[in-house]
Each structure stands twice: as structure tokens, then as C-alpha cells.
Deep mutational scan, measured.
Amino acid sequence: MEVRTIKVFTTVDNINLHTQVVDMSMTYGQQFGPTYLDGADVTKIKPHNSHEGKTFYVLPNDDTLRVEAFEYYHTTDPSFLGRYMSALNHTKKWKYPQVNGLTSIKWADNNCYLATALLTLQQIELKFNPPALQDAYYRARAGEAANFCALILAYCNKTVGELGDVRETMSYLFQHANLDSCKRVLNVVCKTCGQQQTTLKGVEAVMYMGTLSYEQFKKGVQIPCTCGKQATKYLVQQESPFVMMSAPPAQYELKHGTFTCASEYTGNYQCGHYKHITSKETLYCIDGALLTKSSEYKGPITDVFYKENSYTTTIK
């Protein structure tokens, strides 16, 4: 009895394709271990004539594949690729409408935090270190965002349907971005203890939790000093293409032309909904596939993004 075979390709990165001759009487799992086709788990399936010449994702289970996976995804987590594939199996079914010149995501599976993050990423200057993220990001900007969303979920250790947080998501993504040249110098002034300067680099240099107003941050924000008295913390120097200011959701007025974009969060910790506000020729609110415009805006804002380049204080 002759062994019926077909020729397929296996890959971990969709760049390096490895030619395989597979036995049609055995499952993919018996031949390769966990195997995925377009995100779908085909591990328990036997090869079919229609699979001839198709590319299958496999887990990096030998040295060659491990090197290829690390170079593309910059992670050695053995569960990463499987999590990416199972997320992709959902995100490829989502709709990605162009809204006001940006790629958004039609609401499904509690994905409003991903839509808000995706919209924000198209408006701030950011370059990702893992080629996987950078490639998928370019495709997302062009309207094909399924891979990018699935990668975000995998890097953030999230599953489809789980509630997510924009600030946490951005923080994970910033860790995989090139923020080497970003720098922030802060000064804390206390009447009792004097003053202390701190220099922050990388992710810490672009994120701040405690106030939404970048102007206020430049002037000074009140913080408790270690001595128990009130101290003032203010920005001395900022070198970065953008800054992200966050605070627990509270009524906040966004003035046209003073910011790049913002995240609105309605609801409580267990259950809520994100919308995205962007400042173009007027203010726009993007909620999944829905767009509304207004000249002014007041609502429960939790993150505001500002364009920056270089700032030095005039406070002496």
C-alpha cells in the first residue's frame, strides 16, 4: 500500500517557510505537534488534498525554529505562539472599519479597549522592536488589523473576551517599542525636605499616572512627601515624541487643539466601556464603527496623549 502524501510549508514567522512532505494517514499533531492554519487549530486533523502548498504555523520545537521565533517575536515564552494563534482565530472574524481616516474595530468580545489602543497607536510616533509587531502594525494602518490585535493580546497575556485596560495595554506595548531616546527629568520640591531631581528613561519617561493635564504637570502637581507634608512635583525636561497622561476616570474637559487623542471610560472596574476622542479640525468621538463630532467635550476621561518633541522648564 502506497503512502499518500502532500507537500506543505511549516513556519513560526510566515517569513521562513520549511518544506514538509506530510503523510495523509496521520494527523498534523502526530507529525508536527500543535499546528495552526489561519489561526485555526488543526492539530487533530489529517492532511487533505486542499492543504497542498498551504502554510501551517507550528510551535518552535527545534533550534532553527526557536531562533526564527525569537528573532521575529522577541520572546522565548513557549506558550506565546499558541496564544497568538488562538487569538487570531477570533480577531480574523472582527470587522476593521476605516473611521475618520483611522483603522478602528467594530465592537465584539469586549474589544473596546483594543480599538482605543489601536486608534491611539496610529496617532503617536512609535516604532516597535519585534519585527512581528512592526509588520502587523503597518498592515493594521492599511486596514488589516487582525494579526496586530492578536499579537497585542498575546504580548499582554490576554484572551479574547476578557476586559482590558488601555493604560495597561499601552504599557505592555511600550515595553516592546523603541523608547531608548526618551528621557524625563522631574523635580520634587518640599518646604521641609528641599528639592530632589529624578531622571527617568524609556517607558517611565512617557507615562504618568495622577493627572490628565500635561500643562498642569509642567506647572506642578501636589504629591505627598515622605515627611508627610505636601510637596510639588513638576516637569523639568521632556525628550520624547509623545507623552501619555493618565488618571482614574473623572469628568474632564478636553479643549480642541490642546491634545492629540484621549480615552474615555464609562462604567466601573468590573464592567465598563471605552471610547476614543481625537482632536482634528474639530473633536471626534470614535466608538467602534461609530463616529460623532463636537466642538467641545466633557466626560469621564482616563488617558490623554500629547505630541511632544523637546521641553525644558522655565521655572527657576
Rank of each mutant, 00 (worst) to 15 (best):
R4H: 13
R4Y: 14
I6P: 07
F9A: 14
T10R: 09
N14V: 06
N16L: 07
V21Y: 14
D23G: 11
S25Y: 12
Y28T: 04
G33V: 03
G33A: 05
T35Y: 04
T43W: 07
I45V: 14
N49W: 15
F56D: 05
Y57C: 09
V58R: 08
V58T: 12
T64F: 10
Y72F: 10
Y73K: 04
T75W: 05
R83M: 09
Y84G: 03
Y84L: 06
N89V: 12
T91W: 03
K93E: 09
P97S: 07
V99D: 03
L102S: 05
S104V: 04
S104C: 13
Y113S: 01
Y113N: 03
L114C: 02
A115R: 01
A117Y: 03
L119V: 08
L121P: 03
E125N: 10
K127W: 06
P130V: 07
A132C: 07
L133A: 01
L133Y: 02
Q134Y: 05
Q134H: 12
A142T: 13
E144S: 11
N147M: 10
A150D: 03
L151V: 02
L153W: 04
N157I: 04
G161Q: 05
V166S: 06
M170F: 08
Y172E: 05
L179V: 02
K183D: 05
R184D: 00
T192Q: 14
G194N: 00
Q196M: 12
Q197E: 12
Q197P: 09
T198K: 14
L200A: 11
G202W: 00
Y208T: 08
Y208P: 00
M209S: 09
S213L: 05
Y214I: 12
E215A: 09
F217W: 08
P224H: 11
T232C: 07
Y234T: 11
V236F: 07
Q237T: 12
P241D: 09
V243F: 03
M244E: 00
M244H: 04
A250G: 12
Q251S: 12
Y252D: 00
E253W: 08
L254H: 00
L254C: 00
T258Y: 08
T260F: 08
A262I: 00
Y269F: 12
Q270H: 11
H273I: 01
I277Y: 03
E281S: 07
E281G: 08
Y284C: 15
Y284N: 08
A289D: 14
T292W: 08
S294V: 12
S295N: 07
P300G: 05
T302D: 00
K307P: 12
E308M: 12
N309Q: 12
T312N: 09
K316H: 15
